[in-house]
Simulated assay, not measured.
Amino acid sequence: MTTPEEPPAVAARNLCGMVNGLAQRIADHLRERAVALGLTAPQATALREMTGPMTMRELSERMGCEPSNATFVIDKLEGLGLVERHAHPSDRRAKHLVLTAEGAATRERLLELLAQDTPLAVLSPEQQYVLYGILKQALTGS
């Protein structure tokens, strides 16, 4: 257990272990829900992050991976009829990734499944809000 009296290195190690453990539980949860839809975890992550038309670079940043990895995932989603590549409205070198009607429906089903029995369900909405703020501060430094 991390306490204010612990040496900083021990407290940091304990906290990192907890964050890693939570991240693993969230990843396992995503993987289980993805399988229920016939998707891989990276495919489910891409669908989850596609909140609207975006470039491959934008998607790869949201997924936390290299653009080449996102391209591989999108190729598979395109083959499943869930995503299409359209001409970018202002950059002719780029393509916009757009969900098909089936892709949007699959994304909605995925989001419903991800909301069920999430590892964060043990926290109240207020606690989740506080945790979000703390993690945002840790990640952005502000």
Rank of each mutant, 00 (worst) to 15 (best):
T55S: 13
D28K: 06
P42H: 09
Q24G: 14
A23R: 15
A44V: 07
M56W: 07
T40F: 05
G21H: 06
L47P: 11
V35L: 10
A46D: 09
A27C: 00
E58A: 13
T45S: 07
T51K: 10
E58K: 01
T40Y: 10
E32G: 05
R25Y: 08
D28S: 11
I26D: 13
L47C: 09
E49C: 07
R48F: 11
A34V: 02
A36F: 01
M54Y: 00
E61Y: 07
A46W: 01
P42D: 03
G38P: 05
G52I: 01
T55D: 11
A27V: 03
R48Q: 14
E32I: 09
A23Y: 14
T51Q: 12
E32Y: 08
R57P: 02
V35G: 04
T55M: 05
A41Q: 14
I26G: 03
P53S: 11
L22S: 08
L39D: 01
H29N: 10
R33T: 09
Q24T: 15
M56P: 00
L59R: 00
A27R: 09
A34K: 08
R31Y: 03
T55G: 10
L59F: 01
L22A: 09
L59A: 03
T40N: 13
G52A: 04
P42Y: 02
D28H: 10
A34P: 04
M56K: 08
T45N: 09
L22K: 07
A34D: 04
H29A: 04
L22N: 08
T45H: 03
L22D: 05
T51C: 05
Q24L: 15
I26C: 09
M50C: 10
L39R: 03
R33Y: 12
P53H: 07
A41I: 12
A44G: 06
R25L: 14
T45R: 04
L22Q: 10
E32M: 14
Q43R: 08
T55V: 02
L22G: 06
R57H: 11
A41V: 15
A36Q: 03
P42F: 03
V35K: 10
L59Y: 01
M50P: 10
N20V: 15
A27E: 02
R57F: 08
N20Y: 13
A44K: 12
M56Q: 08
E32K: 08
R48L: 13
M54F: 00
R31E: 06
Q24H: 12
L47V: 09
L47K: 06
M56N: 11
M50I: 12
L47G: 13
R57V: 05
E61M: 12
M56A: 11
E58G: 05
N20T: 15
L22I: 14
S60E: 00
Q24R: 14
R25G: 05
G38F: 00
L39F: 02
L37I: 06
P53T: 07
P53I: 02
E32W: 12
R31L: 02
T40V: 07
L39H: 08
L47T: 12
D28Q: 10
G21S: 14
A44H: 03
R33N: 11
A23M: 13
G52S: 04
L22Y: 10
P53E: 10
R25I: 13
G52H: 02
G52C: 01
A23H: 14
